[in-house]
Design a protein around this nucleic acid. Sequence first.
RNA 1: GGCCCCAUCGUCUAGAGGCCUAGGAUACCGCCCUCUCAAGGCGGAGACGGGGAUUCGAAUUCCCCUGGGGCCA
Length: 432
Amino acid sequence: MSSVRTRIPPSPTGYLHVGNAWAAFFNWLFARRHGGRVVLRIEDTDPTRSSPEYERAIYEDLRWLGMDWDEGPDVGGPYGPYRQSERTELYREAAEALLRAGAAYPCYCTPEEIEQERQRALAERRPYRYSGRCRTRPEQEIRALRAAGVRPALRLDVGRFHDPAWSSGWLERRREEGGPERLYVVVHDLIRGEVAFALDELDDFIVVRSDGTALYNFANVVDDHDMRITHVLRAVEHLSNTPRQVLLYRALGWEPPQFAHLPVLVGPDRRKLSKRHGDAALREYRDELFLPEALRNFFALMAWYPEDGREIFSTEELVRRFDLSQVGRASPVFDRQKLVWMNGEYMRRALREDPERVVELVAGYLVRHGLLPGPPTSDQRVYVRRVVEVLGERIKEGSDVLRYGDFFFLDLPRYDPQAVEAYLRGEQAAAV
RNA sequence: GGCCCCAUCGUCUAGAGGCCUAGGAUACCGCCCUCUCAAGGCGGAGACGGGGAUUCGAAUUCCCCUGGGGCCA
């Protein structure tokens, strides 16, 4: 059996997102568990939203989390380039291969025409599927369109797969109760089991846009194949795309990788964790003094329990025990409160084992919050060290430093209004 | 609209037919420890979305519904 290769495919359109970091961690765990390799691929196909700064930030955040990778834009590797923006030629070649094989055809339909088709389907209350008009468009019509400067998109000819010569061995014949026999693309998902998609539900989808750029599904297939990815662990939102991708692999004569569709991390409102939640960027947790080892432990416990009754696991243990078949299928809510508790566990451990590390972190936090003018002088460091000693196990996250210790750095303390009412307004208070 | 995924305490989850009067953790509430807070100890409250079916027996299997989410446009 060939050795395991997984991938981490962030888009440099913003800071590394907690949900992506979580999925990245599972990919990393799985690869490390099986002695495999991790590939980092930068998905920067959208030039208007991607930036080198974000790419650097992603490396930084992933490394901070304790992730490492064996191949990637920054470390090189035998199957590069590892940036999608540098792979357009490869997509073009693959598109030509599709065309040569007769698995795809150019489509000259305009967005307006497609929209009309869709509206008609809607009005007639039948599911919309592309008509396949361009598959049989007369030659002279095509010539005329070309002459008029219309550039075609490329569509996969899904109908082709009904031909046994194209589909033997990997499409399955099944008969729903009372229905006719149909062909199915069956995804053998490592987490969800068999998921079957009827071939005739799929229409001829676009593979390359008329401007020549590859669609996500297509670029992904080409990349994962070229990079010899054996296991694709990604969020369920990609499950519906998987049959299309499988068709693409097969049309190109390639063997698809194994798939495992992870649940989606959601916020307290049960909606997908996003920038709307305000605290979706991994680095905000770093800034709030969450420790990477705490985050790793916490991440592991979302959708997976290595063992019931225990919560604290070292990363080494997690690697040793990781088992995809035990990963849950329901969307876990990212529970910040529990993270705070767990961070407290690790913070107390750090205080015991490496207090200087905590001093360092707290000093940085104080600087960020304006309680220290800048990087501490050696005197200030001594002071911060003593503050940390005093605060001790009260520190579970950054805000606790302020909550319990801001007066160490202020001329006048900030009073809690409730406490003032309760204690300082009393009869004896003035006398005291 | 079609297709796909999901469903146990507020939250993370254990549970793979009888071990379940549904276990643990977190959060919450008490009590203890204690000059305060934190940590810790002890205790409490808190869940199988609904309906059928299979079975001697279902949280666990099957079907339907409901509710969330996603993909395709």
